[in-house]
Design a protein around this nucleic acid. Structure first.
Length: 350
DNA sequence: ATGCATGAGAA
DNA sequence: TCTCATGCATA
């Protein structure tokens, strides 16, 4: 079974299977650089200063950039503040349910509706009761059993959520979306939204997951198998990002109970040591990814410091100068904005 | 682990 | 059109 999306079918580039590759890799660049750049930026001339090591080349880019910027910078104010996700001031209602397309709802496996201010209630999206299975592809030694057991358990059992993972007292299990502006003296309810709690949980989750011999991808699929209402599968990417806190604060909060539930069950299953066949997946891969060259990326970053939200026209102008498709530029800006909001790099006091 | 992308829902 | 949650593809 493949789970390609509808959209993929629309304009899927001619591509062969890329083949899954894994690299223990590292996290080379970006974030830090990004931040640094922002902090350093003061004037048009400085935007590129810190970045450019090559000199003239970067300079050329800078000039071009300034050109476009000049039109958008009128009353410009170079400054950006790294906004923490506390700025979220809107939206979403809960999950839209899954699509009939196979089992993995790509659009909203979980609930997009994050708890926000006013009336929120959570708990609903974790209501679980399901059955899951795990991949039997044993990566290693003799962990297969554990994995299967874990998966099976997760599947079979329902979940409560915080279980043994949330040592925090206090909120009797309610989310408190508003702690966004508390300097430090949370009073009663930010526990669920407390960054430190999330961080602690993420770390714990990862450690235990590994101990169970389950991969990030396995966890994502197991969640789907649990068939919790409104909760589909999650990708390896998302699990990874959860563990590394590279998700928005709200997203972390929404996912935590779900993952906590899985972990709880998985460990229970491991304890009982049961075996389940587990469904192995196949994977078809397709879609191609466009990549933006370094020079262009640098220019985009420069523009971003000046105007994180360029108008459609500015985007078009930038796209032309950099010889990129307008949509690519637009998406790049969107993604850049999102990055600013990721938990790990948001000014979370710690 | 992370870059580029989609899509639902809110503005 | 943007935001946000997510994912495929890939370094």
């Amino acid at each position: 079974m493949m789970n390609m999306k509808e959209h993929v079918g629309m304009h899927p580039p001619p591509l062969g299977p890329g083949g899954p590759k894994y690299s223990p890799l590292h996290r080379h660049h970006d974030r830090g650089l990004e931040m640094t750049r922002r902090h350093c930026m003061n004037g048009p001339g400085n935007f590129f200063g810190p970045l450019d090591d090559s000199g003239f080349l970067a300079r050329a880019e800078a000039l071009a950039a300034v050109d476009v910027m000049s039109s958008m910078v009128k009353t410009s104010q170079p400054h950006m503040t790294i906004k923490n996700d506390t700025n979220y001031s809107h939206h979403h209602a809960v999950n839209s349910g899954m699509h009939p397309a196979h089992f993995a709802p790509t659009s909203s496996p979980v609930s997009r509706g994050l708890p926000h201010h006013h009336s929120m209630d959570h708990g609903e999206f974790l209501d679980i009761s399901a059955a899951a299975s795990l991949p039997g592809s044993g990566p290693g030694p003799g962990l297969s059993d554990v994995q299967s057991a874990a998966a099976a358990a997760a599947a079979a059992a329902a979940v409560s959520h915080q279980s043994s993972f949330t040592p925090l007292p206090g909120t009797g299990g309610h989310f408190n979306p508003m702690n966004t502006m508390m300097p430090h003296g949370m009073g009663m309810h930010d526990i669920d939204t407390d960054p430190r709690e999330l961080e602690a949980f993420a770390e714990r989750f990862k450690q235990r997951r590994i101990k169970l011999g389950v991969t990030q991808a396995d966890v994502g699929k197991a969640l789907a198998n649990l068939k919790l209402p409104g909760v589909g599968s999650l990708s390896q990417s998302t699990i990874c990002r959860f563990e590394s806190l590279t998700l928005s604060h709200n997203n972390m909060i929404a996912l935590k109970p779900i993952l906590a539930a899985w972990l709880d069950e998985a460990e229970a299953a491991a304890r009982d040591n049961r075996n389940s066949p587990g469904i192995l997946d196949n994977g078809d891969k397709k879609r191609k990814r466009t990549s933006i060259a370094a020079p262009e990326k640098r220019s985009l970053e420069a523009y971003f410091t000046v105007q994180p939200r360029p108008s459609s026209e500015k985007i078009a102008a930038i796209a032309e100068k950099l010889d990129l498709k307008k949509n690519v530029v637009r998406v790049w800006f969107c993604n850049q904005r999102q990055k600013q909001k990721r938990m790990k790099y948001s000014a979370q006091p710690r």
